[in-house]
């Protein structure tokens, strides 16, 4: 599903290049549950952003499904990630002005899905995540764990093939974190590919494959 070949990412700071990722080679098959681990500043989020096509590699090749991502135009690329990828963030990034229901509805609106079908999709998802009772609340009225639940629900509502989660439990206490990880496992069992970046050994235990990053290099062990 994903092939990264010699992916390098650096930022120009004056005349010096600061390297964040160095020659990453990685193959990920559909249905995997992968965990990226590494200390702060190792390049975990950058790697996720590149896989998620929010960021672009400075060098190297990236194939997603049958597409050469590095050769695509901006617009085609965003089409691609909208179609296949869902994002989950450490700080949830729900839209504060929208209710739970409306937050879930937003991706469907942008996909121009018809009103009646949209409604049934949102209701199914609310049901599935057992948050029907919360649908008219605003994010500020929810606990962190509940917000992240909504965040994940929003990520999967448009039925993506891949979920990218950047420290999804970073702001949660351990009990809430456990629930979220169990949710990811269930989604993975249903066939969704999951890649998450984390610090936590506990979280890593849920995944079937662990990738270690240090100073931008892919390493075997930390």
């Amino acid at each position: 599903m994903i092939q990264l070949k010699d992916i390098t990412r650096f930022y120009k700071a004056g005349s010096v290049n600061t390297y964040v990722l160095r020659r990453i080679n990685l193959d990920i098959r559909e249905g995997e549950h992968i965990c990226i681990m590494g200390p702060s500043g190792a390049g975990k989020s950058t790697l996720l952003n590149i896989i998620g096509m929010l960021d672009e590699a400075s060098e190297g090749e990236y194939r997603f499904l049958d597409y050469d991502v590095h050769g695509l135009k901006e617009k085609q690329r965003s089409q691609l990630y909208k179609e296949f990828i869902g994002f989950v963030f450490q700080s949830y990034h729900l839209i504060d002005e929208l209710t739970v229901y409306e937050n879930l509805e937003t991706p469907l609106l942008y996909k121009k899905i018809k009103s009646s079908r949209r409604k049934s999709m949102v209701c199914d998802t609310l049901d599935r995540f057992q948050i029907v009772g919360k649908k008219d609340l605003f994010p500020s009225q929810l606990s962190g764990g509940q917000q992240q639940l909504v965040g994940i629900a929003r990520a999967i509502i448009a039925e993506p093939k891949l979920i990218l989660a950047d420290e999804p439990t970073g702001n949660l206490h351990s009990e809430e974190g456990k629930k979220i990880m169990e949710l990811f496992t269930r989604l993975n069992e249903e066939g969704v590919t999951i890649i998450q970046a984390t610090h936590s050994e506990q979280n890593a235990a849920y995944s079937k494959r662990i990738i270690y990053l240090r100073d931008g290099w892919l390493v075997d062990k930390l």
Binding site: L54, H93, I95, T106, Y110
Partner: peptide, 16 residues
């Protein structure tokens, strides 16, 4: 800014 970023990530086009 965050709202704009999130909207883009969940699929909003610039024109939208």
């Amino acid at each position: 800014a965050t709202e704009i970023g999130v909207r883009k990530v969940v699929g909003a086009l610039r024109s939208q």
